[in-house]
Design a protein around this nucleic acid. Structure first.
Lengths: 206, 206
DNA sequence: GTCTATAACGTGATAGAC
DNA sequence: GTCTATCACGTTATAGAC
């Protein structure tokens, strides 16, 4: 397979076999968590096997289940959206649209963010994953953004700006729309930023 | 399970057992296709079994594979986005944003459109599905829309309007964002429509 | 008692024999 | 076209090591 991202042989990162009992157990659990995070984010839920996670962590497959209950629970426990949107949301209000677009655009190579989002969307047939996803998006994006808006329909507008953001994330990370990448990032940021700005600070004009 | 949409017992729709040879074979194939379309659109790829598809079509499970090669190929062959966007795209240009938003919003109860889109997105870990999805979206939305735009950056703008559309589809059909439904459809259509209009007929002002 | 490893079960998709 | 075998999967039962 071969991943570009990091250590070619992260196996046996499991634990110092010299350790015993609770110490080693914690290490094993962490090794499983790390392995799962990597694999889920790069391959998704369905394509990643429990045996594969275990092998990469250097432990027995049964341990994965014993420690986390099920593959689904492990997925839910590890796949959490990283929340570093504060800078994009908290700057000057009249350029927030562009900052948001630029932020999404710049995350492209980062597997932690883009891979996690894609994995969650693709696993969203589970009601639990959908719930997790909605909560995370609300906490990280909708709520902070709504807090900054002024005027009418604040809630709906915040929600809709986030809908635009997730649309961009989907295009870049889920369906991987290549045209948009070559289509000059600058234009994307400027134009999509303006479209979001329309809902952040609405113009009276029409 | 119980589906709200249609015939409670569509089983044995397979074929008239009196028929022979090529005739019956075509009927069987169609019955499998119908069954698969229904089930994939309501339950998604992973949750739908070959046995289940076969039972609903009234045929042997092995026939499903024999006729379509694999479950994945059957999925690819049946899940195609319905394309009835013409009205929304072809009306007066200065209200296209609202028409697009309204069209998406009104599709909500229709499983054929919403379920198919959700199923495709969730199966988009397959490179083939991603390709299929991009082609369909381009053919149904990006190309017709770009054809109607004027001014600079037509291609990018068309692409970005479609990004907004898919964002709305994701929110309504994939993550199933409930707040937006109660959040008064009228406001959603008006506001999101305006945001799309921003890219369809850009204002010079700022 | 607690953590780990072996082996086995049930179910899924699919391939091959008839 | 139908039946049965195969193989990989998630998961569990159970026994071993400290």
């Amino acid at each position: 397979m071969g991943f570009v991202t990091d250590a070619p042989d992260a196996k046996a990162a499991a634990a110092d076999p010299a350790k015993r009992g609770r110490d080693r157990s914690a290490d094993v659990k962490q090794a499983i968590r790390d392995s799962a995070t990597q694999l889920f984010a790069t391959q998704g839920f369905a394509a990643t096997g429990v045996r594969e996670i275990a092998e990469r962590a250097g432990v027995d497959p049964a341990l994965v289940i014993r420690h986390f209950g099920s593959k689904a629970a492990l997925f839910l426990g590890t796949m959490t959206l990283p929340g570093s949107w504060s800078h994009a949301i908290e700057g000057p209000l009249d350029e927030t649209g562009e900052r948001l677009a630029a932020f999404v655009f710049d995350q492209r190579p980062r597997v932690a963010a883009s891979g996690t989002y894609a994995a969650l969307i693709r696993a969203s047939d589970s009601a639990e994953v959908r719930h997790e996803l909605r909560m995370a998006v609300h906490r990280l994006l909708v709520a902070p953004l709504r807090h900054r808006l002024e005027g009418d329909d604040r809630s709906v507008r915040a929600q809709l700006v986030v809908t635009q953001i997730t649309g961009l994330m989907s295009a870049l990370w889920v369906t991987e729309d290549a045209e948009m990448l070559i289509g000059s990032g600058d234009a994307v940021i400027r134009l999509y930023g303006a479209a979001m700005q329309q809902l952040i600070t609405p113009l009276q004009a029409r």
